[in-house]
């Protein structure tokens, strides 16, 4: 096979795998930010928590991979409910600054908590035997785990799409994003909806953090280090949509991989420049509602 084509295929492959992780972590942030207008810098904390729970269950207690992922996701969703009730709720509609500060406080705390319980180094993550090694897709081989990531990411994206477009819950969320007052006056319990959406978004982040532990290593600084990327996905994609962040995550994942592979000396510089251009061109993001 031609060398250039082969390089393009691997960039595309690894880029899309990275994009799936970015999307899973960030899509919840897009929904909650669009719904509640809340600048939540601490969203990565939920992803990190998911990753920590999952790897701990797997390595320390020998729980199977699939069960660990499910338990970690549920645990984070359960954790998100009281956080939303007691810390986030009082700040709905408050100054952006207060929201930024409170969530930054949470990020700082998560860094110390991660170090306290799990030590300063990254958590080891070994995919189960069935998902490790290489897989032959007919024309060439790919790392099995990343193929699995892309596949499960694609399934989740489709489910999310259908969920938001076809279910009652999805319709309620869309209504509340578009016009909260109107949604309230037709009898939607937005307060309950917010809690649900927040827990759901956090659970998705936990899922992304857990499944993506192979790409974005789980360490104490997780929520801080990757914050910029999560925010870029949301801001470039547009708030309150699930399609926007998907396109943005693909764009970011593939271009990040491509630049790091082709022009490592420029590093992430281009990504940031591109983000700036897009945000200036469309301040509400590519798919944001005016």
């Amino acid at each position: 096979m031609d060398a250039a084509l082969s390089a393009a295929i691997s960039i595309g492959f690894h880029g899309v795998a990275f994009a799936m992780v970015l999307y899973l972590v960030s899509v919840g942030l897009s929904i909650t930010m669009g719904l509640m207008g809340f600048v939540n810098l601490a969203h990565g904390v939920f992803a990190a928590a998911g990753g920590y729970f999952m790897t701990t269950l797997m390595t320390r207690y020998g729980v199977p991979f699939a069960v660990s992922v499910a338990l970690a996701t549920l645990a984070v969703a359960a954790l998100a409910v009281p956080l939303e009730r007691f810390l986030y709720r009082p700040l709905y509609g408050a100054d952006e600054l207060d929201q930024v500060l409170m969530t930054m406080g949470l990020v700082f705390m998560s860094v110390a908590i991660g170090k306290y319980f799990w030590g300063p180094t990254a958590m080891p993550f070994y995919p189960p035997a069935a998902l490790s090694g290489q897989i032959d897709l007919g024309f060439r081989t790919f790392p099995t785990y990343r193929t699995f990531l892309i596949g499960s990411g694609a399934i989740l994206v489709t489910l999310l799409w259908l969920g938001l477009e076809r279910t009652r819950f999805g319709a309620m969320i869309r209504a509340a994003v578009d016009n909260r007052r109107m949604a309230q006056s037709v009898g939607i319990n937005t307060s309950q909806l917010f809690t649900f959406a927040f827990a759901f978004g956090s659970a998705l982040a936990a899922l992304g953090g857990g499944l993506g532990a192979e790409i974005l290593a789980i360490d104490p600084g997780y929520a801080l280090e990757h914050l910029v990327y999560f925010l870029i996905v949301v801001a470039v994609g547009g708030l309150g949509t699930i399609r926007g962040p998907f396109v943005a995550a693909l764009l970011l994942g593939v271009s990040d991989t491509a630049f790091k592979y082709l022009l490592p000396e420029l590093g992430a510089f281009f990504i940031y420049a591109l983000t700036m251009v897009i945000l200036l061109w469309k301040p509400r993001g590519l798919f944001g509602q005016a």
């Binding site: 810390l87 500060l101 409170m102 930054m104 406080g105 949470l106 990020v107 700082f108 705390m109 998560s110 860094v111 110390a112 908590i113 306290y116």
Partner: peptide
């Protein structure tokens, strides 16, 4: 970091 985070909250 923990204490400063808590203080912020």
């Amino acid at each position: 970091y923990f204490w400063i985070g808590l203080l912020l909250v």
